[in-house]
Design a protein around this nucleic acid. Structure first.
Lengths: 347, 347
DNA sequence: CTGAAAGCGCTTACAG
DNA sequence: CTGAAAGCGCTTACAG
């Protein structure tokens, strides 16, 4: 059960390990016949290169580490999936690590991945606590943040990132609801600890202010956005009298919880209340759910981040930083409706 | 940007690399003071063990490879998630690889993982083409199949596996529908190429025969089960006149497609037609979907497979094989209804 | 308690 | 075209 090594092959073939190595890496300086003979032998003996040994010398592994602050979030899961696919196409393998929802052992994951010798790291986290970590580790290994959350323009942070333009996303949401005739809306589930949420919120508020649309914000005290927390928040909200005609959810997952609460309390969506989400997770497209939402374009996000990371790996001078902003996209489905005749024309 | 090595630390501390190594691995034979001094130095210099080098010697990596035949299937994604969590708890890191839906390069993934020196491999695949691969590779590395599909009793295969008892699951489905008063049901989406499906189907048929329930099977000619294929199959089925009172879907994903087709054609579920799924993917629990289904108990599956694999890694004599069968569980939600008064009492 | 040496499986100048 | 040797960063007998 011991693995056959280059040394074994060399002995069997009656050549040096150097020669075997050359055959395996099809180096030019080798007799084609001996190469064939060796290769044949390797096949026959089931030889398999020990990538650990090779990496020890070449000091690259062709694996990229992916850290997800919480893989149980569907948005993250989808991201992971697409990252895997993109990376594979570029010849990289993915080593996936996930934190526990809400926990903060991300630095440990960095340490592990670094010890493992990964060529680069992709970090997906909506938490603003990720930033200092990133600044710390990017001197040790090429790193890119996905879904970066800090205000890109105001920021002096020197970080590579790929993210949805959350501010613009917030604006789109406000304008869309306003276009449908809504003048008083509630914004459910914004989290203090999330830069992503802050930006989205600010964009929404700014656009709403311009349009004279009233918005009431209900904050989410929890430190992550689940459908459960959306459900709780919505229940409390719906149980008080309210005159809002639309709800903007901080995320699709929360929107799902909001739908459930509405269902239970007999509030018809969209007839009595319009609901707009953010993310466009897979769930949102399901029959019967059909959530209107702002899409994060997960696939594009994944592709861009993998591409950026591999570029950094190839020629990281560690001096240039690129921040890639992806404009989100409105996906119209069945949970928002127009509440005035004139606004119909806006569509 | 060069990493600091054990050699650097040794030089700085004025000791040998042996001593540094001992400090790092807190070996007993070392002066506590020098150990502290060295450890402090390591911290200060940002030393990080090169796990590749260590693995080269110890010949284990503490990483387990996970091969998913198709990570875009929600059941697989959920599995991956739980595997990650369980593995982390047992001190293992996960290296995730996914095939492209329908493609067959699983052997390449095995080769890669083996080259990478993983300590063990978890393979999740419903395809019966996985079996020969498994038999081939398990001599090289501990391997366990998740969701094994072959008839466990009839099988002479010597393979480690953890899977849902699909035959029993099929029986449960038939009995449940019969208990609700259904006497003529359709079974939509069974795939020829999937042992899993075959077993489920057989269990369903056997139990139905015992109960004098008629079942018509509609095969799925595609080689994977998506909601899209469920949709197509269902449309064709619904467009012909039919007198069945219930549909059993080969999987939840297909059930989703069936729901959509029913929706479009104005067939009310469960009022006109009951629908039962299999898997209990996350989607199934969503408000408005609320699919009644047979649960695969993903978490238990993941936990059992990781536990089995780590045991094999620890003491693999390669002579014992364990097949772990998990009984599925009926999850009653809103898509099945009783169609006779007396059957109500059965619930 | 400490260190010199060999070695894990490979690659890569260097010399022939 | 081929091989001996050094070395990647670590660990582990073995000798002191």
């Amino acid at each position: 059960m011991r693995r056959v090594t280059i040394k074994d092959i060399a002995r069997m073939a009656g050549v040096s390990v150097t020669t075997v190595s050359r055959a395996l890496n099809d180096a030019p300086e080798i007799n084609p016949e001996t190469r064939e003979r060796i290769l044949e032998l390797c096949r026959k003996e089931g030889y398999r290169t020990n990538l650990l040994a090779r990496s020890l010398i070449s000091s690259h592994t062709n694996v990229i580490g992916v850290i997800l602050s919480d893989i149980s979030a569907p948005f993250h899961a989808a991201l992971a999936l697409h990252i895997e696919t993109c990376a594979a196409q570029l010849g990289y393998q993915v080593m996936l690590c996930s934190g526990q929802p809400g926990s903060d052992r991300i630095d440990q994951l960095f340490e592990f991945l670094l010890s493992q010798g990964v060529d680069g790291i992709l970090l997906a986290s909506a938490s603003n606590s990720a930033l200092p970590l990133l600044e710390h580790y990017q001197s040790a290994v090429p790193t890119v943040l996905i879904g970066a959350a800090f205000p890109p323009i105001a920021s002096s942070k020197r970080i590579n990132s790929v993210c949805t333009d959350n501010y613009v996303g917030g604006q789109m949401a406000a304008r869309y609801l306003h276009g449908l005739g809504h003048r008083k809306v509630a914004y459910l589930g914004v989290r203090q600890g999330s830069d992503t949420h802050q930006l989205r919120h600010q964009g929404f508020l700014d656009a709403a202010a311009e349009l004279d649309m009233t918005v009431d914000t209900v904050w989410n005290p929890a430190n992550h956005s689940t459908s459960e927390s959306g459900y709780q928040l919505a229940r409390n909200f719906f149980l008080q009298p309210f005159s809002h005609t639309a709800v903007f959810a901080a995320s699709d997952l929360m929107a799902l919880g909001i739908m459930q609460a509405a269902d239970e309390l007999g509030i018809a969506i969209p007839d009595q209340l319009s609901l707009l989400g953010f993310d466009n997770i897979d769930y949102a497209a399901l029959p019967k759910i059909r959530l209107t939402t702002i899409s994060q374009r997960t696939e594009a996000l994944a592709a861009a981040s993998v591409r950026l990371l591999t570029e950094l790996i190839r020629q990281s001078d560690g001096t240039e930083f690129t921040q890639f902003l992806l404009t989100p996209e409105l996906i119209q489905r069945d949970t928002c409706r127009s509440i005035c005749a004139e606004s119909q024309e806006h569509l």
